[in-house]
Design a protein around this nucleic acid. Sequence first.
DNA 1: CCAAAGCAAGAGCACTGCTCTCGTTTTCGT
DNA 2: ACGAAAACGAGAGCAGTGCTCTTGCTTTGG
Lengths: 235, 235
Amino acid sequence: MTAIRGARERARSEITEAIKAEARAQLAAEGAAKLSLRAVARELGMASSALYRYFPSRDDLLTALIVDAYNAIGEAAERARDHRGAATVSPVDRWTAICTGVRAWALAHPHEYALIYGSPVPGYRAPRTTTEPAARVGLALIGVVREAHAAGALKEPAEPLPDPVVADALALGAEHGVELPGAVLTRLVGAWAQLFGLLSFELFGQFQNVIEARTEFFEQAVLQLARSVGLTTPR
Amino acid sequence: MTAIRGARERARSEITEAIKAEARAQLAAEGAAKLSLRAVARELGMASSALYRYFPSRDDLLTALIVDAYNAIGEAAERARDHRGAATVSPVDRWTAICTGVRAWALAHPHEYALIYGSPVPGYRAPRTTTEPAARVGLALIGVVREAHAAGALKEPAEPLPDPVVADALALGAEHGVELPGAVLTRLVGAWAQLFGLLSFELFGQFQNVIEARTEFFEQAVLQLARSVGLTTPR
DNA sequence: CCAAAGCAAGAGCACTGCTCTCGTTTTCGT
DNA sequence: ACGAAAACGAGAGCAGTGCTCTTGCTTTGG
């Protein structure tokens, strides 16, 4: 399918990629608000109007960058998870590995992080293509807990949950073919959101004059999150 | 000081307030990115250049709105805390009251929430005047835990913490005259950040197709946060 | 009372996203 | 192999933006 279907098609994908690369560079340099189609076109030596052949609007360019960013941070999570051997490390270690991997990516790409986990751009409505990449980090976390569950190393929380909450959790589990107790899945979603709360506060400057030892603090908080989903800490 | 120091001075503060009000309206309608000084001036029937007598730049207007938003959400937290009688409700109830109060404000003012807890605006550096209002929600949470501690209703976590982390926590406590164990303060900062992780995910659409029963889920997660800082759940 | 400071308005600059048109090039069905 | 159709690049242009500068007017205060 991606064979030589004409030089035009290849040129098109090359130019598309060049536009995204230049846009990403501007994003990293100045942030999403200052990303300008005209500047991208200028830098690429083409007319600004020509750029609209590749992305129908500025929001479409941003959407493409968003998808890429989701995939990049998801990949960072998966790579961190698989970095060491499979079952040789404890679930808690893999959990923290994912979290620190995600944090490292976020610290290295703050503007791209802000693009996906900051305020949504005003006119923007998440298209269907973003939902799948957006789930990768969460799925990586679920995977760890699932393995721990299979290995019997999961301490299920035994607390009463409102019916609608467990319904959501079970629907979520069914959607991804995960057989985990509703309470665990609920805790997982919470931990997932809270992980990005920690990251956003650090990246968006909320920890200024509050937390200095950010890395150590993060590690500690992430360990606490692991405990809250039922992962037992090795002693 | 605020006496009748001339009609000019009063007119100035009135116009300043009118500008902020109109800007807030545009913010609520379209979001921070589409807030335009010219549109504000147009709506107020004045020349756009005249507006620069009151706010030297767009970022300065935004900063004013940010300070107001921090104060508004802080006030919402404090009002929720004090809503019922003082010691008649348990610390956990006051904790969840603050959190749900903050959530209610955020849901009612999503764009203002995004302004303060979303991606920071590019050229923007938080001035000294924002740090104090920004701390109000956190201080409200600390207050609840401090009362519980004084009443002996706090279960301190007994876990080893890295030295730099406890140092940060104790410095934070000293700054606000709070005598709480370092481990508790550390957990508190984490819970504070995680609370806004939950809110941001809900407001920024990350829970779409994931969580439907948002209110119930939030209550559950917040209760879990209360537990993580050592507040004992009443049974 | 009059200089000084504060103020409003208009014109203008450089920039933005986006559209439309026009001439050229590539692709593809016949 | 050819000719219509589609894709393409460039330029001009529109409406909008933040911001500055200049020009008059009004309030203030010594």
